[in-house]
């Protein structure tokens, strides 16, 4: 049998993203006649056994302890590499997060594997061997990489790339093992001297996001976005240029190099819809675009569009939403 597919969760991914990686893992395993092993780093999430069963996972391996539980990158890299020595696979799948983007290439270097980030799919079992599709140019293009035969591949799966689905039929109870990876010799080369303070709610979790871009014209006008967001019980988002210009801090940036969001409602005001922005909001259930340019790319992604001046529309939306007391 071919080496198994290893899916690794670090606890930094959303539960549905962990399930998306298990869904992908199952597909790759089935195509190459092998099993999925699920490696959990740090405290195992609630209900992991049910999730594992639903996805037909053959074995769950849980690794915790000093450094792993705090998510120290140097320790996580060493832990995964040590795990791989005992139980090598053909593919190692992470859900792509800020943290796994750092870990994945370092693990790949240690275990002699290839690495692909921004992955949207993996195929195995065909004549071409292992193939990974990924987004490039911020999502403007897709690329397909063939992995050199005999080489394993570490993949980080882009958020929202795959719809999580459960396995057909009933799977046997997975074997669960608590691992004792000896990490005593690991050098922690980087010290955090000031931890990030996550103050308040996160854009990733917001149900409603009203986002503004350069079309707002000035930092003062960004208040319109803030006001409408608050009124709808949501949060304010931003495109990168206005973050770069200091209208709002980077915690509000949506996109490839900002937040990947999945709200029920996303309102994009004065945003052109460059793919680097749109990858951060295409998972929205309903996207509304307000733009003076009828040809703006954002309309290709929107459910409802208003061709018009957001400086006129936003105040009216605030009025209308307030009059009717609408909320999410």
């Amino acid at each position: 049998m071919t080496a198994p597919v290893i899916v690794c969760s670090t606890g930094t991914e959303a539960p549905e993203e962990a399930e998306a990686t298990l869904t992908l893992g199952r597909k790759v395993a089935a195509a190459s006649g092998t099993d999925v092993r699920w490696l959990l780093l740090g405290a195992a999430p609630d209900g992991y056994a049910d999730v594992a069963r639903r996805h037909g996972v053959a074995a769950v391996d849980i690794a915790g302890g000093d450094g792993i539980d705090e998510g120290d990158a140097d320790v996580l890299v060493a832990a995964v590499a040590r795990y791989w020595e005992r139980s090598p696979g053909q593919v190692l799948v992470f859900a792509q997060t800020f943290s796994t983007r750092d870990i994945a290439p370092r693990v790949a270097a240690r275990i002699g594997a290839a690495v692909v980030t921004n992955a949207v799919d993996v195929d195995a079992g065909g004549d071409a061997g292992l193939e990974v599709s990924a987004a490039a140019f911020g999502g403007d293009t897709r690329v397909l990489y063939a992995v050199t035969p005999g080489v394993a591949c570490v993949v980080t799966l882009q958020p929202n790339a795959i719809e999580p689905t459960a396995a057909d039929g009933t799977a046997p109870e997975p074997a669960v093992e608590k691992l004792d990876l000896d990490l005593s010799g690991v050098v922690r080369g980087v010290r955090v001297v000031e931890a990030a303070r996550s103050d308040g709610p996160r854009l990733e979790d917001a149900d409603v996001i009203v986002a503004g871009g350069r079309g707002l014209k000035s930092a003062e006008n960004y208040q319109l976005v803030v006001e409408l967001a608050a009124l709808l019980g949501g949060m304010a988002g931003a495109s990168r240029p206005i973050v770069d210009d200091g209208w709002i801090d980077s915690a509000h940036q949506v996109g490839l190099t900002g937040k990947i969001t999945r709200p029920a409602l996303y309102v994009a005001a004065g945003i052109s819809g460059a793919t680097q922005h749109v990858v951060g909001c295409t998972a929205a259930k309903t996207l509304v675009a307000i733009n003076t340019d009828a040809d703006a790319s954002i309309f290709r992604h929107a459910r409802y569009g208003i061709v018009g001046d957001c400086l006129e529309i936003l105040p009216e939306l605030i009025r209308s939403a307030r009059d009717r007391g609408v909320r999410r």
Binding site: A114, E131, V132, T141, V143, Y145, A146, V147, V151
Partner: peptide, 9 residues
């Protein structure tokens, strides 16, 4: 370790 096979929009 990787070979670009295809690119598309």
């Amino acid at each position: 370790l990787l070979r670009l096979e295809r690119q598309w929009v």
